[in-house]
Design a protein around this nucleic acid. Sequence first.
DNA 1: TATTAGCACTCGAAAGGCGAGAGTGCCAGC
DNA 2: GCTGGCACTCTCGCCTTTCGAGTGCTAATA
Lengths: 363, 363
Amino acid sequence: MAISERKKRILAAVVEEYIRTAEPVGSKAIAQSGCLSCSSATIRSELAELVAMGYLEQPHTSAGRVPTPMGYRIYVNELMQRQKLSLEETEEMNRRMNLKLQELDATISDVSRLASQLTDYPALALTARSAVTIRRFDLIYVDANTFIMVLTLSSSVAKSKLVQLPVSVDQTLVQRLSSLFNAGFTGITEEQVTPLLIKSTERAADDTMGLSSVIAAFVIETLTEANSPAAFVSGENRLLNQPEFRDPDKAHRLMSYLSGGGYVLPPGAEPQESGEIRVVIGPENAAEELKDSSVILASYDAGDNTRGLIGVVGPTRMDYSAVAAKLSFLAAGLSRRLSSGGAPPEGMHNKLIIKGDDPNEHR
Amino acid sequence: MAISERKKRILAAVVEEYIRTAEPVGSKAIAQSGCLSCSSATIRSELAELVAMGYLEQPHTSAGRVPTPMGYRIYVNELMQRQKLSLEETEEMNRRMNLKLQELDATISDVSRLASQLTDYPALALTARSAVTIRRFDLIYVDANTFIMVLTLSSSVAKSKLVQLPVSVDQTLVQRLSSLFNAGFTGITEEQVTPLLIKSTERAADDTMGLSSVIAAFVIETLTEANSPAAFVSGENRLLNQPEFRDPDKAHRLMSYLSGGGYVLPPGAEPQESGEIRVVIGPENAAEELKDSSVILASYDAGDNTRGLIGVVGPTRMDYSAVAAKLSFLAAGLSRRLSSGGAPPEGMHNKLIIKGDDPNEHR
DNA sequence: TATTAGCACTCGAAAGGCGAGAGTGCCAGC
DNA sequence: GCTGGCACTCTCGCCTTTCGAGTGCTAATA
């Protein structure tokens, strides 16, 4: 049976009222809300049909109605109207973003913290798997026992390590290694760093001390890290604001799942284009722990052709409209700030595009 | 009035029983526990005196006794016996530490996560303020618009940044800057990086584009970061395991305080020597939010003459003895692994001491 | 035929009452 | 000074009652 226009309006009213109050919604409340011009009795019969169709349910015989996941799905797909952010809200968000991201080098943890603060729900940030390679390789000779490795990645980030040796090496070996690695290890993927390649570099450099394999190990480590999808969750404790998580055990279960950081997207739920918003409702989630929670995801352009994902987790009764609006604003702001073209700033200090290890990272 | 030996034993029994059960402790329970050879009536009169002295209190007239902060204080200072860890426990802890710290480069977040996992309480990790300086300064010329800055710190960590310029520079300027900065900016503290110094370097290098100030900004940023005490909290959600935090509001208050990361030690509570354990009980805490929680702190030697601090947060009714034992084991293990002398490993791979930017850091 | 008003009914949540039990303080006897 | 006994107190859990929101149904109405 198709859903009539009036049923849709009633469904939307139920969802919105339930989101607002977290209490089952009665026919009278809908009639009084004024968006429908019919009596509570009419609404009652419509509600009964919506229950039969599976969009609503009753916690018990004499209670109001509550949306089912199916009901939320219809709401999100068809009924929800994109909420507009007020001027104050956009200003506030811009202010916060600028505060956090002024170094033009947003760590994934910053992004998730920001999303959590702005929405007042727990948030997670994920980076997509990408195909970063080494663009340039340098070894700086410091003294007989020390050198510095510097790897410049194709994502325009520099990574470095100080290596202290228990044995002496001479400067020419370091130089030989530097140019050999720069020739052989740039532009290749992690899988292409084979034992064979390492072995041949070792031989070519006349490296009898196994330095090559140490260096190669750092190369692999760096590539692995740069390419693997990182995840970061923050604001788990904001769950406790929600009445559905007043049960400490329930809250604890979800919070420790989130802290574990093993969030997996259900198939097909990944937003494809930058700026797209996806909503995963209750049982649509892959993880058992999320079966009665919803996740709203947005994707943003993190520069260097990689996309990042921000997600917000809440009860199925979450404010989809408001969160989606905030998230898409946030994603747009991040894309603008992070993609290399953006954010024309003032002053020499800002005109430079600086990317590298963030000294603000805690360690 | 001095506390008699018997009173002490009774107090210890109350504290331990209360820690175990989280229920007010009655006279009968103590009598039956067998550690005292007197009747419940005797114990009752002793309990009444302990209440009068302020070491115990009653939630209501006909309930058992609960330790006051003063009672916990006496217990921690005088009565608690250092708990021995079982062989399995030490092995488990060693295993976990090795797992986490195999790269010999423990980030502060790893340390706090470890402490939280091992104790099953929220944990925080702090690094003490230290006096790191730049040991060596390098600029690598990449192309006319790009160079890499590499800062080697006195703590033997290398930090790097890739700088992309909107204008062209020639290689000789980069070299000049490199040697001038290496001469002028090494070995000095953050405060000594004055505008005057920057200005004179700029002039000496014939730097008309203001590169010097950009570079100096990175130097300051790096020094600030390296020297400022970093804090990291993990496992906040474990609070929910504790019966005293079954009230979601209470739990939420403390969790958001902890997530804020603004933990301040009360004066005098900082453990002075590596390995020392300090306990801060309830109202002794500086922050209002912690007034009915306790913090157990241990200090460890993080290498490079800096000390780190790990703390565990729980209700005042926390298992001081067990946590202190675990924490001191953990601190000892960290000291051993992190101070440069330690951990003789096998194989070339491990013989090298590698310090630098951790590619395992999420960003 | 769709809508509305009226009404009896249902069921959960909140409020009140009650007894059980744990624990106390006190007192008299050893 | 310690102990057993005893009356007293207070909370907790359980049960019952009440209250009210909300329903489904039916008959009247546009």
